[in-house]
């Protein structure tokens, strides 16, 4: 345990259309696992995970929210006071990108003033493109020789990038299934979190964290495993 490093707690919220893979991204980040059939998130799930940076530790308190439209009115409860948000869409489903745009919009107008937002195009594995290579063009679905369909990319890389540039967001294409870029997302956010992260209404809690540091760490470690 690196007790010497300071620990910053960051409240992070995941938003995006149903079934784009929010919970899967979190699961990959928190326990490096992937489940083929993940139950939909009801309301929201809460998880924590730490990120080690060179000079400090960032502890993410993650609110993974439900994606269905009708849960949207609950979202303010979750993004209240959030310092970071990950807005996810499915790179094979254009409507999810529009939804992502709406979320960005809502966060910008209703969220915390300096909220750090990462835009994530998930399910990159489905595009059949090389993870390292250039992003390919938008493609129609095709059938492979066995007759099962391969879903093509449906949202161009440039579309995501453009939205990110316009709104000042971090942008990644990722895959919860293969793990591609998942850690990077959270690392990039962690790096953007200012060191002095004690917003007035959190100073109490941060103080409490410091005094019970050791005890907390052990319980968190246990949490992250499960």
């Amino acid at each position: 345990m690196e007790a010497s490093k300071t620990t910053t707690s960051v409240k992070l919220v995941l938003l995006g259309e149903a079934a784009v893979g929010k919970s899967s991204l979190v699961l990959r980040f928190v326990s490096d696992e992937f489940q083929e059939n993940k139950e939909p998130t009801i309301g929201a799930a809460f998880l924590t995970q730490k990120c080690q940076l060179s000079n400090r530790t960032v502890k993410f308190e993650i609110w993974d929210t439900a994606g269905q439209e009708r849960f949207a009115s609950l979202a303010p409860m979750y993004y209240r006071n959030a310092q970071a948000a990950v807005v996810v869409y499915d790179v094979t489903k254009p409507p999810t990108f529009i939804r992502a745009r709406h979320w960005v919009n809502e966060l910008k107008t209703q969220g915390s003033p300096n909220i750090i937002i990462a835009l994530v195009a998930n399910k990159h594995d489905l595009t059949g493109e090389d993870e390292e290579g250039e992003a390919g063009p938008v493609k129609p679905d095709v059938e492979d020789e066995t007759g099962s369909s391969i879903v093509g990319r449906k949202v161009a890389y440039s579309d995501g990038q453009k939205l990110a540039e316009d709104e000042g967001l971090l942008f990644f294409e990722a895959s919860a299934k293969t793990g591609m870029n998942v850690r990077k997302i959270f690392l990039a956010i962690a790096n953007k979190i200012p060191i002095e992260n004690k917003t007035p209404n959190q100073s109490n809690r941060a103080g409490a964290n410091e005094t019970v540091d050791v005890g907390m760490n052990s319980s968190q470690a246990a949490n992250c495993q499960c």
């Binding site: 139950e39 009801i42 809460f46 409860m77």
Partner: peptide
């Protein structure tokens, strides 16, 4: 005091009839 909104925690209980 510890800023835990109960409704956030209990909502899934009610909505899934505790099944999840």
């Amino acid at each position: 005091e510890v800023d835990v909104p109960l409704s956030i925690i209990s909502l899934p209980w009610f909505l899934s009839l505790y099944a999840n």
